[in-house]
Computed example of a mutant assay.
Amino acid sequence: MPRPFTLPTQALEWLVPAPNMKVLTLAGPSLPVALARQGHQVIAIDKDVAVVSRLREAGIVAVVAQAESLPFDPCQFDAVLAHQTFHRFAPGLVLSEMARVLRPGGAACVSLLARDDSVPWVRRLIARLRELDPHAMSGDYGLEAVGHLLDSKYFPEHDATSYRHWVPTSRPDMLAMVERLPAARGLDEADRAELVADVAALYDNAAPSGRDALRLPYQLRCWRAWVDHVELTAPIDIDDDGLSIAL
């Protein structure tokens, strides 16, 4: 149901607050272009060759690479950003790589767009759909993965903010979404018609008069975590009781 999303200017300025910063983006085509338009020096990576080709056509320096094994020398970037992609990476690998390529004082920046289920009509829609499927409209949108960043020894200090974002959804779009649900497709014709009628009534009751579409609420949640290189350079201390093997 959500349409393609571009981070608003205020979110970009919060994530990358200084002018003309050198930034690395981890996967995705929209963020590098938006940052370049803000005047930053942008390098992008993506595993998808087609995405990298499109970015190059747009004038972005882009490389086919994985976030867990960055092909860059240490201390190259002021910020490393991941929008809607951080949960795809292996935290034990990507966090040390992000720390390695950041300059002293640099920040790992993560943003996620998550539906806001606190709005009453959204709660009613979810409750009706979960009568059929307990897992309908569920998921943490990658929020759980952010905990790895906030708990990381490489990033001991962090800050966070959020922005409200509204996505218009029309009556036909909402009914089509409901009919596409696996649980709805498994109903007989009468029960499926009853479900669609219930959702249509919910939409009609919630839609403000004079407006063509309801607005589905989302929260754009953003985090900045500042790198500490001590953990990358600290000597390894062997416990007195540990096994020592001479080479």
Rank of each mutant, 00 (worst) to 15 (best):
D48K: 11
A79L: 01
R128V: 13
V119R: 15
S138Q: 14
H87N: 02
H40W: 06
C109R: 13
L125W: 12
V63C: 10
L81W: 06
V42Q: 02
D73M: 10
A36T: 01
S152M: 01
F89A: 03
D159K: 11
L55H: 01
A67S: 12
P104A: 09
G39E: 10
D46I: 06
G106E: 06
A79Y: 12
R130C: 01
H83T: 12
A65P: 09
S53H: 14
A65K: 11
R128K: 14
L70W: 08
F77W: 09
W121K: 08
A136H: 02
A34Y: 01
R103A: 07
V119A: 15
R123G: 14
V119E: 15
K153N: 04
H158A: 13
F155G: 05
R56I: 00
L149T: 04
G139H: 08
D46R: 05
D78Y: 07
S96M: 04
R130L: 02
S69G: 02
M137C: 08
R123A: 15
Y141R: 11
A145E: 07
H148P: 00
E157Q: 12
E144M: 03
L150Q: 03
V63S: 01
Y141H: 13
H83Q: 15
H40G: 02
D78A: 09
A127F: 03
Q84H: 10
L102G: 11
A160I: 00
Q38E: 15
L129H: 04
V33L: 14
L70N: 10
A67Y: 06
S111A: 15
H148C: 01
L150R: 13
I45W: 06
T85A: 15
P120Y: 06
L149C: 05
A79V: 04
S152P: 00
R37G: 11
L149D: 03
E131S: 03
R100S: 09
I45K: 03
A99L: 08
F72E: 09
G105Y: 03
R124F: 01
D48L: 08
H148D: 14
